[in-house]
Amino acid sequence: MSAQHQPGGWLATPPRPGRIGAYLALAVLGALVGVAGSLLQGAWFPGGLLLALLATGCLFYGGLRATGTQFGVGAPAAGWLAAAILLSMGRPEGDAAFSAGIGPLVYLLGGMVVAVMCATMSRLPQPGGRSGRLEK
């Protein structure tokens, strides 16, 4: 068994440029979905909130499927969280992207819950690998 297929083996091998690029692209996409979701959830409640959370979940699960790693969820989640937190802070003049109410709170907490759910899903089966099931 190669070092990369052993538990923790990905730490022993240097990251490939393509994988780094994919994680960076997912982080940028996460920030874009965070900005769009922040605006949409307040503009069209409750449909916008549900649509924003659905887009967030699709991005996180898509990152998991595209990379096959939990870091594929963590990269867009970091971008999403950074965008959502920056938009929620507001400006000294009192302007903010989030209004007062339950919608923004559900969006922030719901997005974090969706990220944790996607990150803790079971790993995807490796191609050519044996099943983890015991044979009879």
Rank of each mutant, 00 (worst) to 15 (best):
G57C: 10
G57E: 11
A78C: 12
L40Q: 09
Q70H: 11
L49V: 10
Q70W: 12
R91N: 05
L39K: 07
I85S: 01
A78T: 14
P92M: 04
A82T: 15
A96V: 05
G63A: 06
F45C: 02
L53K: 09
L50K: 02
L87S: 04
D95Y: 00
F98W: 14
G47H: 09
A83E: 04
A43F: 03
Q70Y: 07
Q41A: 15
R91L: 13
A75Y: 00
P92V: 05
E93V: 01
A100Q: 13
A97D: 02
G42K: 00
S88L: 06
G101N: 09
P76H: 06
G103T: 15
Q41L: 13
L40W: 11
A82M: 12
A66G: 05
R65G: 06
L54Y: 10
L86H: 06
G90A: 13
S38I: 02
G101D: 09
L86W: 09
P104K: 02
G62Y: 04
Y61L: 15
A75M: 11
G68V: 00
P104R: 04
L87T: 00
S88V: 02
S88K: 02
R65Q: 14
F71V: 09
A96T: 12
G94T: 01
L81H: 01
P92A: 13
L86C: 11
A77D: 01
M89N: 02
T67Q: 05
A83T: 07
G48D: 10
L39N: 11
L39H: 13
L51F: 07
F98N: 12
G37C: 10
S38R: 02
A100S: 14
L64E: 00
A78S: 14
A43H: 05
L59M: 09
L87K: 08
A75N: 06
A96N: 13
R91E: 04
L39T: 05
F71L: 13
L54R: 09
A78P: 01
L40M: 13
I102F: 13
L87V: 04
A96Q: 10
T69P: 00
L54H: 08
G63R: 07
P76L: 07
L49P: 03
